[in-house]
Structure formats: C-alpha cells, structure tokens
Design a protein around this nucleic acid. Structure first.
Lengths: 313, 313
DNA sequence: GAAAAACCATTACAAATGTCACCGTCTGTA
DNA sequence: TACAGACGGTGACATTTGTAATGGTTTTTC
C-alpha cells in the first residue's frame, strides 16, 4: 500500500486524516500504523507546519463582523477581515494565519495569480498558506529582496516556494541597491521587467504595511539607517508599503532612496485588481491610516484592537 | 465588545480562533476571556460539532492518489476521492467527513445548488459540512423522507437545515407511501413537482448507495420487510440508490414499490450535472459495483479498503 | 569502510486536555 | 414563595498529548 517515493506525504496525510477526521487518538494511530507514538506526534506537527492540515474558522453569523462593517464604511474599503487580538509577540503570527485563511477562502476555482509584497507579515501569510493541490495558483513577487520571504521557514522542503505545483515568479534582484543608476539598469533588465509586468496581472496582491520606527523589519534589515529614519520622519513619513514611504495623507514622500528601490511603484499598485493590506499592532496604526488615506489598499486584514483604533480615531 | 444577540457565536469564533490559529492553550484562553477551563473545552467541542472550525487535509503530492487513479480508470469515473480506512463502526462517520471536505473544496465562488439523496452516509456528510458564511449555497433534497436528514443532529440550532443562510428546499412528503396511486398524486402536487424540477438543476448531487441487507438503513427504517428483501434478492438486486434497486449490471429492477417511492428516478439522476456517490464498507462493495455499472454516478467517495476491492474485483 | 548524521523506538516524565461530581446563581413557572 | 432546570464555576481525577534523554539502526559522506 505504501509507495516508494511518495511515502513521505502518504504517511502524513494518513496520520492527519486519522487524527483530525476520524478522531482517533495518537496511540490508536501509532498502533494501527505500527509507529511509535512520538513519531505520530512529530508527523502531526509537520502536518500543521506544512499545511497538510489546515484549520478554518467560519463565523456563521457574526463575530468581529460588526467591527468589520464599521471599518469598511469608515474607510470605504472593499472588504475587511478582522480577527481576535492576541498579545504583542504573537501579533504577526496571528495576522499571517488570518491572511492565509482569507486568501484560501477567496480563491476561485480559476487560475489565480497571487502577488506578494515585502515584509514579515506577508512572509508569515505565505508560510500559513496551505498547499492547495487542486488549485491552480501561481505567485509573483512585487519587489526585490527574496530573502525576506524565506526568513520564516525551517527547512528547504518546507519552503513556501515549493508549496505550489505551479510557478513562483521572483524578481531576481535585491530590494534596495546602492545607486539610482544601478536601479534603473536593473529595472530595464528584461528578466526583471517581465516579472514586474506579470505582477500587474495579479488577481490578489498581499502587501504589508511598515511602521515608522527603528524596530520595523525594514530598518532592522539594515535597509535604512537611523539617520535616514529621522529624516523621513521629519518629512512627515508615517509608514511604508513596498519600501515606499508616505505621509499621513498617504502622499508618497519625495526622497532619494525611492530611486534605489526595486519594487512595483505605489502608483502602479493603485491600478491593481485587488490589493490587500495585512497589518496590525499599536505601532502600526498611523502607518495603516496613511495607507488607507492614500488609497493604496482595497481591503484590510487586521486584528480587533487595531481595528478599534481605526474606527475611533 | 460583546454583542447582545450574537454573543453566542461571538464567543465561539473567538475561542476557536485563539485555540486553532493563535495556538493558545485552553487555560490561557480561559484566563483571557474570564471563563472556566471547562467552559473553553465545551465551547471548542461545540465549535467542532457545529462547524465553526473545520479541518482540511490537503495532500500536496500523493496519498491515496495512486488508488484514486486506478479507480477512475477502471470505472471510467470523472473523479474519485479516497480516504484512509477506519474500523467498521466508524466507516460512515469517516465517509461523511470525506464527503463534506470534497464538497467544500469543490465549491466554486458562484451560486451553487447542492442536491442531497437519502441515507445515513449522506446525512452524515450534511452534518460535517461547515457553515459557509461567505458562499452562496442552496440545497435541495432528491427524495421524500425528511427525517433521515435529521437523525444525526443533536439540537435544533445545530441542525443542518439552519446551517445555510440560503434556502433549503425539501420535498414535502414521505419517502415511501402505501399505494402507487397516492404516490402519483403526490408527485403531481405543484409544491412537490416544483422541487423535483429544481433538483434537476443541482450543480452537485450527493447520493448514498444502499446495500442489499437487513441492516441497511433503508430496511432498518422499516421501508422494506425481510420478505420483500428476499424477493428483491431473488430478482438479482444488489443495492439501491434513492430507494431504487438495481441488479449487478445496474439495471433497475421492475418491482412494485418503485411505484410508491417519492424520489427522483434513476433515469433522471443520469441526466444530472455531477452525481457523487458516497459509500464504503465491505458489505457495500457489490452495491457500489452495480451503481458504477449502471452509470448512475460520475464520481465516487469511498475509503481505501473498499476502493481496493473495486479495482481488484 | 569508518565516522558522522539522521532517523526512529522506547521510556519516563511533564503539561495539557477531558470528565465528573458538586455547588451556587439565575430564570421561568406554578 | 418555592421549585425545577439550565448554566457555568470549582476542584479532583483520568486520559491524552508533548518533551526530553537514551540507545539502536540506517543512511550519508568522506
């Protein structure tokens, strides 16, 4: 019954099924399959990690729906998905799970192209996405800086890039380069230009929203020095999307290093089909408001606490 | 934050989210929400029961896929979904879970009409279907005999009939009546005829396959006496779909009580868009083979063990 | 072909989860 | 007012799940 090459996931699917669908205990499963209980535990762990099993929370009537409505109305959004708040260290994990569930349920049967922005939350969303064996999904990045997508993965096989049968199109370049000139040249490279054009066709785009602070992923990655950060703040910057900073009204700042970024421009982002912002946490509220005022995102995924601040502000 | 009337599910969604997505322990959840741990356990139970949370098993590469292919080829099916086998008493539960997951993943974004046949497995499928708040789903029955759909539910609010925002169209009649004449009159009733016509439009139809034995749900419900059963067996009957018996080649038997059934006929079933049979267990193998030979179903959902018998036979 | 690494069973223990019996509170009813 | 019944908290206990240490076996690597 076991198959040579597919043994690995064969076992995983089987264990996951027995545990989550047939509601057998781990001990029963171990006995039945001739494994140690410890092994069953490990396999189940991997199943959750790698999306062999995924949990969906369906609210039949209302949950944060009340709040969702308020946020949608107040900010003229297309859609909002608001999930229960968790404590700070876990916020991004939580939002990643939220983003993934949102995407999964909004995936149509048709061929879909998913666009992904840069950042920790986005990367976590990617991580939580379950392998969708039966769906035709391709993915494309909206910026350079591939490493950021990989930071939250454990091993190679567990890499989101491999989760999809279909293509993963990555802009082959760093996110930020040293000279505007280099940047221009990279953007003109056919291989790069091709992917950025492809990105325009994405059906769903997920972007993170970066706050204006020293502990933002963006600054922590060393893309911005603390002096530069100060300058940006002086110019009224409140946050960034795809590395591009804007003020509280959402106007893109006119700063040097925007010319050194390899990323889809905010202008182009505005023309895309469905841009979803995933962000939350007290320190991001101003950044989110700016993004909303700038009209860069159509839908917002966030947590309760943040959402409350967005409607009360 | 809590809302008067929606308190009930509000809490449920919150607890489920914290447990399954944020991976908090029950104790943490209890503390955070000011509940007893026992309560959290109960709420989680209800969440699983009522589909507030649902588990999906996604096989990235292969699982029983090998077998699925074989079954599809051998019987010229459109699709097959084969899940790990469990021990006899749990078979139907398992198949119900399988049926539900299959439907959920095959639901398109568009308005969908689901048709449901009669029987225990079908009823369990219905029970496992998660409330799909964002999907437009209507349901329609293919036969009389409403009670069968309710046998596996616990309380009123937990009733599948209420799971769907949208309409649930039920043929208002018993499954079997005493005289062919009564039957004819019922079928001519506009209210009945209307729904049976509607059923023709179903995008997906799920039917059970009944075996030819005294402990089949059909006989246990008292629709058939043991003498009648014997007669049917003598005539070559191997199983039934929607109360209609057929022989091993799938030819519908010519027996009296088919004229007393309020159900979509097998002939009409054959013209439907996508008919899915859900059935498994050693005692059903012959019935399933008959159904396959008769061409009554396009796709089959079953378990490994049964599938093996189907390809080896 | 030997050392290193990966894998897995086993065991014992710790933590989380599930069950139960008991109790108080609140609500509707006679 | 009294009483029944639903609900939910509490604490003891049983079961299940998770973790870590040990040791044997297989696979990889040089």
């Amino acid at each position: 019954m076991a198959q040579s090459n597919s043994d690995y996931s064969e076992l995983h699917v089987r264990v996951a099924w027995y545990y989550y669908k047939a509601e057998m205990t781990q001990e029963e499963i171990a006995t039945r399959l001739g494994l140690s209980r410890a092994r069953v535990i490990k396999v189940l762990d991997q199943c959750r990690q790698e999306g062999v099993v995924s949990f969906h929370i369906n609210s039949p009537f209302t949950n944060c729906l009340q709040l969702e409505k308020q946020v949608i109305d107040r900010w003229k959004l297309r859609d909002a998905f608001i999930v229960p708040a968790v404590d700070p260290p876990m916020i991004n994990r939580n939002l990643g799970a939220a983003g993934a569930q949102y995407i999964e349920r909004n995936l149509s049967k048709e061929e879909t192209l998913l666009g992904f922005g840069w950042g920790n939350t986005v990367s976590l969303t990617l991580k939580h996405l379950s392998l969708m064996d039966h769906q035709k999904v391709s993915m494309v990045t909206l910026s350079g800086g591939i490493t950021a997508y990989l930071q939250n993965t454990y091993r190679e096989e567990n890499n989101p890039l491999f989760k999809f049968n279909s293509r993963f199109h990555i802009i082959p370049s760093p996110l930020l380069v040293s000279f505007p000139n280099t940047c221009r040249l990279i953007l003109e490279e056919p291989e790069v230009a091709r992917i950025m054009q492809l990105a325009q066709l994405a059906n769903i785009v997920v972007v993170g929203i970066g706050p204006m602070s020293a502990n933002a992923t963006f600054t922590q990655f060393g893309y911005i020095t603390s002096q530069e950060l100060e300058i940006l703040q002086k110019q009224g910057g409140v946050g960034d999307i795809l590395g591009q900073f804007y003020d509280k009204d959402g106007n893109r700042l006119d700063v040097d290093f925007h010319n050194r970024l390899v990323a889809v421009s905010l202008e182009k982002l505005k023309t895309m089909q469905h841009v979803i912002g995933v962000a939350g946490g007290a320190h991001k509220v101003e950044a989110i408001k700016g993004a909303l005022r700038g009209g860069y995102i159509h839908s917002l995924i966030t947590d309760e606490k943040t959402a409350l601040e967005l409607v009360q502000g």
